[in-house]
Each structure stands twice: as structure tokens, then as C-alpha cells.
Design a protein around this nucleic acid. Structure first.
Lengths: 234, 234
DNA sequence: CGGCCCGTTGAGGCAAGTCAATCCACGTGG
DNA sequence: CCACGTGGATTGACTTGCCTCAACGGGCCG
């Protein structure tokens, strides 16, 4: 049951002509109520899956980047509370399928690919549970920075210089801490010259090995997010 | 993409003759190293998926009951650290398939079912992230008791009286808190006559509505764990 | 009957949350 | 080109929920 990531592109090209193309502006919310979509494939930009609890707290479950595919069944739909929605971090576009369209265009051999995608997301959710369950906030921030660097640059790059398209509050809600604490920790990392904050939404990791020493799950994150590594191989 | 839970049994009967039957005693650990299994279907007893971090902390990701099916790709394998394993809470038995056997016996129409199972697990992981991320410990314990009651008894029962096959430490590690705090909270619930602890491993919920008032995600848990409700319907 | 393991209780400390004040980047209009 | 306004980010002072660690209790087994 290894990843069928190789045919992700063929899947997308299959899906793209039959689905609805949805464009979102930054900060715009995409509620399921819209059209009862069952499957969303991110084409461009950055999105986040977030749940808002009745007590007002917000948890961001996942940041979605181009190539990610989400099925609604794996979210908390159809639940009135907590309200789950997808929100655009930046201007973004996605292809959406409802149940009928998905049934039509998902050929037999794509089930396996869709399963692989969902398994990857479950594995990420597991890593995330370790982070918010049993790491202190410094380790959580280090883990986040590391995974985002690996996800967008890959480990082979010498200069890890990447965009954080979301706000500090979004990151804090992903890491289950508050943005004050997050800010303090990022300042500390900069003072230690592990990172440089080029501006609000751009970071450069100057000492990735030192950063790795701050998180006990570094090997896990490397395996899971490094895009220059063959996906799921060994 | 609705749940194919209806043919879960036919899937199991298909799988059972071709897989390895593994019996486990209570507390026994089932390491993936054993035989490189790719898929495990729980037949009997209770198991737990747990990850141990290099810092010594342990996170229980999921309690597995009969009927649950786990694919290894969705765990954190194959990672040396953190070490993920499956451990038996009680005497238990399971059917295990390696990659070859799975490929042979998973008929085309089972991919959809396997996808549905994985989606359910991802949805549970999402609920779990809300719990450990943004609920205080009292709400977490209430959420756990509620979900276990619903999962094993269903909401239609009048007397919710069920077994907690795992130790206090296991529950605490699932809820990302320590067992001292868990103990205090369960004592408090008993003092409020919400629950009765019949013995170490048996609980009766006497006032389920009061229990529900302690957790902001009660409707979500009802939908997700109530076994008397049609699975994923609506 | 006695040891052991698991669970429960108590006292004290600390990491992180809260709330308020300030700062800064950036866009706007004079 | 520069003053101004705005919203996000940063900082500081204070508070607190939960963890820690150690002691106690009570079933359960040999």
C-alpha cells in the first residue's frame, strides 16, 4: 500500500476539467454549506482547515498547499459544533468536486491514490498530536519552522528561505498556544541566530541543525515533510 | 464517498482466511518489526496505538476495538524515533496482512471501504486534536468518558455501564495529561454523582446530560462515536 | 498474612496563559 | 515627501492550571 504519489498529476488533470474551479481571496472563508463538495484539490495559494469551538477557541488542523487533496468525510462535517471551515491564507484557487462528480471521474485506480493521500494526512495528524500533546512550546515552534522549511524548500537546499503565508495567530492556533508566547519564542530563536525574520511573512533558517536540536521529533518531520526526499519511500 | 461500513463484515471474512492470526496477551507489545505487516484488523479485545518520544513522553493515539482496521502507512512508520507501537490492553486477537497478501485479497470494491475507514480515523484524530489542543483537563476527561460510553454502549441504552480496559496511565497519556490530574477529576465527577466507579476497570455513567455539559464538543462526539447511530449517515 | 502494583491525595513550583501597553510596518491622503 | 491611522506583532507584569514528586491507601495475588 505504498504512496501512489507518482500519479498525483494525472489525477489532477483528470479532475480539473470536471470540477468547479473556486477562487478565494486572502482571508476569505470557504464553508461547506456552499455546495456540498466532497473533495477539494488545492491548485494554488495556501489554505487552512480550522475548527472553532463553542468556547471561542480555534484550532487550525492543517495548512494546505498546492497538491494537497482533502476529502470532506475526513473533516468533522457534518457537525454544527464545532464549526469546521476552510479559510484562505493568501489568494488561492482550488478544484472542488461534489459526490456525483467524484464518483464519475475517479477511476478505479485512483481509489488507491486517494487512500494514500488520506493516509499521509492521518500520519501528519499523528505527528501533530505528538506536538501539541507532549512537546513544550519551544519544541513546538521549532517543529513547525522545521516542517515548513522542509515542506517548501526541501532539506537539500543550502539557504532555507521561505514564506510563512499565515498570520502569527494562525500559527499559534495550529500549535495550540497563544501568539504572545509564539512571538517570544521566535524572538529568542532570532537572538540565537537560528533564524532571521526578513519580514512578517518571510523567514530564513540559518542554522537548521541547531533548530533540529530543539525538537525531539526532527527525524520524523524530515521523513514526513522533506519534499526532496522520495515520498513514503522506505 | 459515504462510509462503506455495511460491507465491513464481508471485508473481514475475505481477509480472515488469508491473513496471519495474531494473539496477544494483556500488556504485550506488537512491534511492526515482527513481520512488516501493512494492515491490521482487530478481532477481539482492546489495543492501543502509542508513540514514545525520545524525551520519554508517551502519547496514545488511538484505542482500537473489534472491527477497527489500521493501515501502517497512516502510522508514523517507518520512523526510528519516535517509536510507534501497538500494545494490547487486554488479551486480544487480530488478523494481519503484509503488503503482498493485502494486494491479493483486497478486491477493487474494498479500496473504497478502506478509504472510508481511514477517513473515520482521520476524523477521530481531528476530534482528538481539538481535545488535547484546546480543552482544559476537566473537559478532556468528560469528552473521553462520553466517547467511550457512546462507543461501547450507544446512546440509546438507559444504563451506561461499561468497561475501561486500559490503565489510568493509558487514559492520561491519551488525553495528554498526567494520571494524578485524571484521578482528581474522576473523583470529582463521582462526588458530583455523574459517574460511579464500580471498580478499577468498570464505570457507570449515571447522568450523561450533566457529563455532556462539561464538554463543548458533545454533539461532535455523539455523531462520531455513538454506535447506535447509523455510521456517517446524514 | 504480607508484598506489590496501581490508584489516590497533598503541597509546592513553574511554564504558559492573560491582559494591557507599546511598537512597528505599511498604506493613505494631505 | 511626510504626518497619520490601522492592524498585526512584540513586550512586560501578573496570574493560574497543571505538573512534579512524594506519601499514603487499598485491592489482589501468591
Amino acid at each position: 500500500m505504498p504512496g501512489g504519489a507518482a500519479n498525483l498529476n494525472s489525477f489532477l488533470s483528470q479532475v480539473e476539467p470536471r470540477g468547479d474551479h473556486v477562487g478565494l481571496r486572502a482571508h476569505q472563508r470557504f464553508r461547506q454549506g456552499n455546495a456540498g463538495y466532497d473533495l477539494i484539490a488545492v491548485i494554488d495559494g495556501a489554505l487552512a482547515i480550522e475548527a472553532t469551538l463553542p468556547n471561542g477557541r480555534r484550532q487550525i488542523l492543517e495548512f494546505l498547499l498546492p497538491g494537497d487533496i482533502v476529502t470532506m468525510a475526513s473533516l468533522l462535517f457534518p457537525s454544527p459544533l464545532p464549526a469546521v471551515s476552510i479559510r484562505a491564507m493568501t489568494e488561492a484557487s482550488a478544484v472542488c468536486l461534489n459526490h456525483r462528480a467524484a464518483a464519475q471521474c475517479i477511476r478505479e485506480d485512483y481509489w488507491e491514490m486517494l487512500l494514500a493521500q488520506t493516509q499521509v494526512q492521518l500520519a501528519r495528524a499523528n505527528a501533530h498530536r505528538l506536538m501539541i500533546g507532549h512537546l513544550d512550546s519551544t519544541s513546538r515552534v521549532a517543529s513547525f519552522l522545521l516542517s515548513f522549511a522542509l515542506r517548501t524548500c526541501g532539506a537539500s537546499q543550502s539557504n532555507l528561505h521561505f514564506a510563512l503565508p499565515m498570520s502569527r495567530d494562525d500559527i499559534a492556533d495550529y500549535l495550540a498556544m497563544n501568539s504572545d508566547t509564539l512571538s517570544r519564542i521566535m524572538m529568542r530563536f532570532e537572538a540565537m541566530t537560528l533564524i532571521r525574520r526578513l519580514n512578517r511573512h518571510e523567514v530564513s533558517v540559518d542554522d537548521i541543525n541547531a533548530l533540529k536540536r530543539f525538537t525531539p521529533i526532527a527525524p520524523l518531520l524530515s521523513m514526513m515533510f522533506d519534499r526532496t526526499r522520495p515520498p513514503l519511500a522506505n
